[in-house]
Nucleic acid binder design. Structure first.
Lengths: 138, 138
DNA sequence: CTCGATTTTAGAATCATTCTAATATAATAA
DNA sequence: TTATTATATTAGAATGATTCTAAAATCGAG
């Protein structure tokens, strides 16, 4: 199980957020940081066979709570997960379900507007745009 | 079953989008247009008892396909549905699951950015921001 | 090193959503 | 109108992603 991130860095990322640095959590976090495939829980479990599916779900929940990971809704009845290193949003091809990470838009004004509209402290967000390839137009 | 929208208007909205104007579809569309409660399929079914749950789901699917309705992801394991009359985005209180419709942000620049980043024609989007009441800060 | 709190785990359970296939209906043409 | 046909509705069964359970393992503070 090659760690692509240094062990100590993963440990720190978890502990800084109040999470115990278990080997399973480090492996899953490393997996998400080093894959751009936006996997489902089942895909992560399939690749990391030594880790139970329940732990994959439990870990993802903790990583989401602490902001390290976000969920992407692809409209395929399963949640996809994405390491949230830098602010970005998602563009989803409605036909192929391909997911594109994009960051050519500053979300801060949207966050400010939401705080103003709601009075809440914004702790996270989902931005997903769905698109169709012009080549596929009927 | 009081129709709050004129019957003919509902009929036209459906037919303009290539959907047969069945009584069930008119009732469900009217329900969504006249409620700001962001109901789940089960809630709609409970209120409109004469319409089967399968039809509620089938109809919602059609209304989503044609852009009349959008899905809101509240993180409570059920989809919530919202009539999409005017462009808006959603702010969700993470503790109470309350949903706020907000429109104090112009989404067109985001749509333009997404088209530029992906080359796709953007056909829809989800914008959801999650927030915590400052009064509940620990 | 100890110990308690937390985490992991396999398998069972849940339940929102989809599917099935039989019946009913809307929209079109005669 | 009425006939025709594609489409929609329905009850109930099936699906499957996710959550739950409770027993065993492990982290990390002291």
């Amino acid at each position: 199980m090659e760690m692509l991130m240094p062990d100590q860095k993963l440990r720190n990322m978890l502990q800084e957020r109040g999470l115990k640095a278990t080997s399973q959590r480090m492996i899953i976090l490393d997996y998400l940081m080093s894959h751009k495939t936006h996997p489902t829980a089942e895909m992560i479990h399939a690749d990391l066979q030594s880790i139970s599916l329940a732990t994959v779900y439990n870990t993802l929940e903790k990583l989401i709570e602490t902001g390290l990971v976000v969920v992407i809704d692809v409209n395929d009845d399963k949640r996809h997960f994405d390491y949230y290193g830098k602010p970005h949003y998602h563009i989803i091809n409605q036909e192929t379900h391909e997911i594109i990470d994009a960051n050519n838009f500053d979300v801060q004004p949207l966050i400010d507007a939401a705080r103003k509209a709601s009075g809440l402290n914004i702790s996270g967000y989902h931005i997903e745009l769905y698109g169709i390839d012009p080549k596929d137009a009927k």
